[in-house]
Design a protein around this nucleic acid. Structure first.
Lengths: 134, 134
DNA sequence: GGCCATACTTACCAACAGGTCTGTATAGGA
DNA sequence: TCCTATACAGACCTGTTGGTAAGTATGGCC
């Protein structure tokens, strides 16, 4: 496991928040919780993210041990990004955050559209969940 | 409930993360979970925070409905900051984040010192928990 | 050789975040 | 009047972050 280049806080809660608080990180992780993805796939799933920032955040997530990057020797180039065990362990935390975020929106009367907090497929029916950033 | 000036993301998880991800916010909230505090108290509890940022973050937490600010008509000026019901509801989420943050530090072999994840007094004995930022 | 698909990298810039330092306001007490 | 305690506000600066736009590398196919 390579040492993260970007130093993380010592305080556990600050550390946790820092690993997932960069732009698009939560969205990226959400998609990777559903299985490995290529860069091009993630680009299509998150249309509003710039190539540069997508790569940047993936690299950071990788550095912090949440994401694994698998390079295939082929052309066109193929790189698979997948959530590590550590990354997968964030799922309940992300769910808790999502639930609270909904509660927050309701409390502040800012419920334009209530997005379901589903980070894994519950069954074959993909459902109505859409995550693409705000 | 006043509308927050700083617009929050629509996506619930991004919204949640944004409300607690500013500098010192988690630490500030941690202290307010233990009861109302004055600015000077918070300054003493978190020695490394600058006056300006402390006030700024408290104002943001207030704007986002997590913190209540009570002004007393007296001199010296007295202002009490306390966690709102919404803010208090963050406790389990913060605990989950803290637990995960510890797990993360262990997984990356960065366990200098394991800080306990206690956000409320468990009993009369205050214990060994210390939160002051990194 | 040109085109394709994929996965990046680089230069540049605007906006933002956090911090230092200085100053202001209030009433009470010596 | 000066000092005290408390709670800010404002000017300024540095470093970071997110994004736009353009470019590079690889091998396969026509």
């Amino acid at each position: 496991m390579a040492k993260p280049i970007k130093k993380l806080p010592v305080l556990p809660i600050e550390r946790a928040i820092r690993t997932i608080s960069g732009r698009w990180k939560a969205v990226i992780l959400y998609h990777l919780l559903n299985g490995p993805k290529r860069l091009s796939e993630l680009s299509k799933l998150i249309p509003s993210v710039s190539q540069k920032v997508l790569v940047q955040q993936l690299r950071e997530l990788e550095e912090h041990g949440l994401v694994n990057r698998a390079v295939f020797r082929q052309v066109p180039p193929r790189v698979d990004y997948s959530a590590t065990e550590l990354g997968l362990s964030l799922e309940p935390v992300m769910l808790a955050l999502c639930d609270w975020g909904q509660r927050h929106a309701v409390a502040l009367d800012e419920i334009d559209r209530l997005v379901d907090c589903v980070v894994r497929p519950v069954n074959a029916g993909r459902g109505s969940t859409t995550v693409g950033g705000d």
